[in-house]
Each structure stands twice: as structure tokens, then as C-alpha cells.
Measured scan of single mutants.
Amino acid sequence: MQRVNMIMAESPGLITICLLGYLLSAECTVFLDHENANKILNRPKRYNSGKLEEFVQGNLERECMEEKCSFEEAREVFENTERTTEFWKQYVDGDQCESNPCLNGGSCKDDINSYECWCPFGFEGKNCELDVTCNIKNGRCEQFCKNSADNKVVCSCTEGYRLAENQKSCEPAVPFPCGRVSVSQTSKLTRAETVFPDVDYVNSTEAETILDNITQSTQSFNDFTRVVGGEDAKPGQFPWQVVLNGKVDAFCGGSIVNEKWIVTAAHCVETGVKITVVAGEHNIEETEHTEQKRNVIRIIPHHNYNAAINKYNHDIALLELDEPLVLNSYVTPICIADKEYTNIFLKFGSGYVSGWGRVFHKGRSALVLQYLRVPLVDRATCLRSTKFTIYNNMFCAGFHEGGRDSCQGDSGGPHVTEVEGTSFLTGIISWGEECAMKGKYGIYTKVSRYVNWIKEKTKLT
């Protein structure tokens, strides 16, 4: 034993070699072989497995989906700052455009905790909710729209109204504003409101030439003092309507412009014939205590009207009353817009006519005020429907199939267009061939041609 100890002390290297040989010859039971080890760690190889990531292109799944990435790591994937920024906006807080917040056709661009709407022409605001041009839906104005110097929408209202708090709607500024039905039992019968379409306001006024200088022999019209197929109006439903009495009662109609003036057809009036105007009328054979009678003290036909040349060209006249009318729910003026808007309103496509005229061709006159909704007829169809001249200051309205029309005794009465609950004068009943005849239409004086003249002559002093 002493000898062994001496050998170990003198030859430590020998001992180490012996131990190493023993270990190498022993069977290893701690580690699995290569094949079995792979069965336990069965993990798919990654895209760049075996390579240094710093030297390969980034992978979106590896960089940002398996674990949260930084902007720089995302930049490695896209290799483009702009594309990385677009991805980053949604990656950080989701897609803010998912709810489609942009209105009126706006395009949404996502941002971090926010979004941006790219608005089409005519709109602005956070969600493109603000109209900035009158060309689109009248700028959301209830009545009139004008573009300011910086191309912003400025709404306005006709006389007797003021802008509401929203700067879009119009509200009454006087007790009985024009064009409004205020009798409670008839307010439910107000005709369907007309909503502004998209309009090209630059070209809204037709490029028409008034044929002022045409000389033409007097034409022989049949029954051209021209509501057939209409309905009984309720008291106060058309408070701007008046009836004219002269040699015979209810020979023509008219509309209240203001307390002192009536507008009617020029062919209705004769110099030297006494005319009485009755406002607030409903049943011409009954006294309903809503009527107001006034005498006409002055007749002003349009300066281009000449019955000797043509009885229905420039067929418009103004009547001055001896005493002002007292405005109330049964006696209310009709609204008159400017030339541009009167023309736009007419193009809405349908209007209402009213009167006490004959209820059928050569038949009896109506006792109760009649009204009828009539569609506008395109000019080409209008011209083809008659052998008589249709001037540019006239328009056609009615039904091709016949059966409904204005008729004798309705002449001078109103053709009105309702705009968001307020009625505007767009025409004056003038003439036609018979009444409600198939293929024939009622012919009306186009008020847009005469609004400046009306307003100039009827100013209240």
C-alpha cells in the first residue's frame, strides 16, 4: 500500500490518463441519441435557420407576430419608411378606419389613436360632414345658397324668414311668412316636400332668348283662358290664391305678392273693366268669414305684352289694390325667389296649380277651390304637342294621358313649387288646347323671366 501511494504521488498524470480511459469505455446513459432527441424537440425550422439574422431580410411573422416588435424591426421587413409607417399605425392600436367614419364618399386613412378623412370636392370637416359648395344638395341650405369668396357655403332665406341657429334652416321672422300653410287642420295635408338634388348652379339658368321682337298675326285659340281631375282644397291650404270678379264672377285667378299687390295673367284683364279681388276665398257660393274683398285701382301688364300681336306672350300683369290686405292664416303671400332659384325650383319637376275653373272641358265651374299636382314636361315634348308657338318664356306641365289639367277660369292662378315646406311661385296658368285632352298640356308663363320686374313694381313704400 505504501508503494502504491508513492507511485500516485510521483505520477499524477498517469492516474488522470487511467481515469479518462475508464470513462470513455463506459456506456453513456444520461444523453439520448440524435434521433430520439429530435422526437422530443420537434420544432419547425425557421426561415433563416442556421444563418445569422443580421444578414437576412426581415420576416413579418418572425419579427412582429411571434413577439412584439419595434418600429426598427418592422422597418427591416418593409425596407421602406412609408410602408412601415402605414403598417405601424394599425399594428400599434388597430384600424381606426374600420367603422368607416368618413361621410359623403370620403376616404379614410388610419393613424395612431386617430384617423384622417380625405374629402371629395365640396366637403370638409373631420368626417367630411361639412358642405362647402352650393353645387351639392344646395349646400344643405333649406332655401338659398351662395358661395363666399373663400368658396364656403353661405345660406340665406327669402323675405319674412331668418336663418336658424344651425345656419342652414329657415324659420319665420314674421307672423305670416310667405308660402307657408298655417291653418292647423290643413298642415297635415301639406304636399310632399321637395329635397334639393345635386345641381350645376353655374349652368342652372337656361341660355334662352326671349323672342321679344317676333311679330306674329293673332292666333285663334280655343278655350285658351284655361282644375280638371283635381281635388277639393281645404280652407287655408292655398292662402296665396285669390279669385278675380268682373263682368262675371271667378273669371280668373291670381296670387298675393304682398298686402297691396296681386300677380295674374295679362290676358285676364281689360282696361276700363272694374275688377274686384277676393282673398281668403274657399267656396265661392258661401260666406265663410275668411274672405277679404278689395278693388283694383291700377293694372300693370308687362311692358312687352301686346294682345294685338299675341294674347299669351309675356302673359303676366300686376294688380294694385285700393287697401292693403290683412295677412292671416287664410290670406298669405306666395314666396318669389330670384331668377336663378325660381328656375331651379321649376326644374324640380312638379308643381301645384289651383283655381275655381271648370271641372271638365266646357263644363261647370268649381264651387270649392280645386288643386292638382302636375309634372313638368320637357321642352321637346311640349313643342311636338301643339302647332302653336311655345315661346321661351312659357313652359308645359300636365299629363300625356289627359284627364287632369287646369281649365277655363283658372287662368292667372299660381303654379307653385314647394321647397322644404315653403311654396314659391314658378308659373302662372296661361293657356292650353281644350282641357285635359290626351297628348295636350297646360301652358304656363315662366315666372323666372319676370321676377325682377315683379319685385321692382310691387315694392311697398
Rank of each mutant, 00 (worst) to 15 (best):
Q219A: 14
A307N: 07
F31L: 15
R358H: 14
N38K: 12
L14Q: 03
P235C: 03
H415P: 00
D150A: 11
G421H: 06
N80I: 04
C252V: 01
I262H: 01
D338S: 10
V377A: 07
P172K: 06
Q237H: 08
I284A: 08
D110C: 03
A307T: 07
Q237E: 05
Q370P: 03
G403R: 04
K45Y: 04
G432L: 03
R364F: 06
W88C: 04
E35A: 11
I428Y: 05
L23Y: 08
A380W: 13
V296A: 05
N113W: 04
I443D: 01
S169D: 08
I297G: 04
T186D: 12
A366I: 08
E27M: 04
V154W: 10
G421M: 04
D93A: 07
G229V: 08
Q408R: 10
L327F: 11
I7L: 10
G280H: 02
A207N: 13
L367N: 13
Y371H: 12
C396V: 02
S107A: 08
E54Q: 10
K457C: 09
R62D: 05
T461Y: 12
I297D: 03
Y450E: 01
A279N: 01
N203Y: 09
P175W: 04
R449T: 12
S354G: 12
G439W: 03
E208P: 11
D410M: 15
Q90T: 08
R226L: 06
C178D: 01
I136D: 09
D405Y: 12
F345H: 02
I428K: 01
I15M: 10
G236F: 05
V174Y: 05
F224K: 15
E98L: 12
V154N: 08
E288T: 06
I454V: 06
T458L: 03
V277S: 02
L20H: 02
E401S: 11
N151D: 09
H303I: 06
E340G: 10
H415F: 15
G13K: 15
R180N: 02
V374C: 03
T426R: 01
N36V: 09
I428V: 09
I275L: 11
P414Q: 15
L318Q: 00
G160R: 02
L32N: 15
P120D: 04
E35S: 11
P175R: 12
K188N: 12
P239N: 02
I443E: 02
G254A: 04
L163V: 08
R75V: 11
I210C: 08
C28M: 04
R75C: 04
E434D: 15
P44I: 11
L372K: 13
V153N: 06
T194Q: 13
Y305K: 02
V77F: 06
Q241R: 06
